[in-house]
Design a protein around this nucleic acid. Structure first.
Length: 281
DNA sequence: CCAATTGTTATTTA
DNA sequence: ATAAATAACAATTG
């Protein structure tokens, strides 16, 4: 489920526990989400620690913990990737973990729950003075100054024979873009998802760059980006004018042209587009 | 039983 | 050697 703005939405949920101490940690130690971390070590380190802050980048989140068994001048860095079906929840402190709640951090007033039925998600953990390499290696954000038209053009040229849809899903240049956001961007840029990346003209590259930034900015704002109230549910504030609401409907129509939408597998993922707006070559 | 799912990564193919 | 395509991972639902 979670792409850029959705990840920020879930981070904000756990932010309810900022400044709170972890009183106990519950884990499903054999769960696949711990394939890159030692759940016993996480539980030991976080016991008594305080949630000091958090950030989101691309499809990942970083939660910083201090105190407890973590030494002075150091922090415990908890990395969360929600995969396909993961989510973060806030529950009453005494609520028993459900079947797919693989990591639960119990504070005095609430429990912070990581739930992931499909377990494509991932938990990572490190202790140190600075954020770990797996966090700092995330590509610079689409809304940062590093995401330029030139960088996009170079990247498309490097993957010239790949369909544009597949290239938009690559996190090393389009961090946080997932399947629905890629379709949304291509629809707004009026680019057919099967177009070879190397075939885009300069004006089309500029449109792609512009719509990437627009979709990221709007989706973040409407899902409670920093300084804005958190909506009650994920994506409820996206208008019906977005492709998002129509792409999975059977017999769905393009919110701009009213013409039928098409669906096919492109670049290995189910893709939705509006043939009336998005033409091949 | 079959197909589908908003993600990533290792392996195979070109 | 590099890039593109495919398989695999797991659980659930229709």
């Amino acid at each position: 489920m979670p792409e850029l703005a959705e990840v920020e939405f879930f981070r904000r949920r756990w932010a309810a526990g900022h400044r709170g101490r972890v009183r106990s940690v519950r884990v499903h130690p054999r769960a696949r989400v711990f394939r890159e971390a030692d759940p016993a070590r996480i539980a030991h380190a976080l016991m008594g620690a305080r949630l000091a802050g958090s950030e989101a980048a691309a499809k990942q989140m970083l939660f910083r913990f201090t105190g407890g068994a973590i030494g002075r001048g150091r922090s415990g860095w908890l990395g969360v990737h929600l995969g396909m079906s993961g989510e973060l929840l806030v529950a009453p402190a005494d609520q028993a973990p459900a079947r797919h709640d693989h990591l639960v951090l119990v504070q005095d007033r609430r429990a912070l729950v990581f739930r992931d039925p499909r377990m494509f998600g991932r938990i990572r953990f490190d202790v140190g003075a600075k954020p770990p390499q797996w966090w700092t290696a995330i590509a610079p954000a689409i809304l940062s100054d590093h995401f330029t038209v030139e960088a996009v053009g170079d990247f498309l040229r490097r993957h010239a024979r790949s369909p544009i849809k597949a290239v938009l899903l690559r996190q090393e240049r389009f961090p946080g873009i997932g399947n629905w956001m890629a379709d949304e961007v291509l629809w707004r840029a009026a680019l057919h998802p099967a177009r070879r990346s190397g075939s885009l003209r300069p004006a089309e590259v500029r449109a792609l760059h512009r719509e990437c930034r627009w979709v990221c900015r709007e989706a973040l704002a409407r899902n409670g980006g920093r300084g804005r109230p958190l909506p009650p549910d994920l994506n409820v504030n996206l208008p019906r004018s977005w492709l998002f609401w129509h792409r999975w409907e059977d017999g769905g129509t393009c919110p701009r042209s009213g013409r039928p939408l098409a669906r096919a597998e492109i670049g290995g993922r189910t893709t939705c587009w509006s043939p009336a707006r998005q033409r091949l070559r």
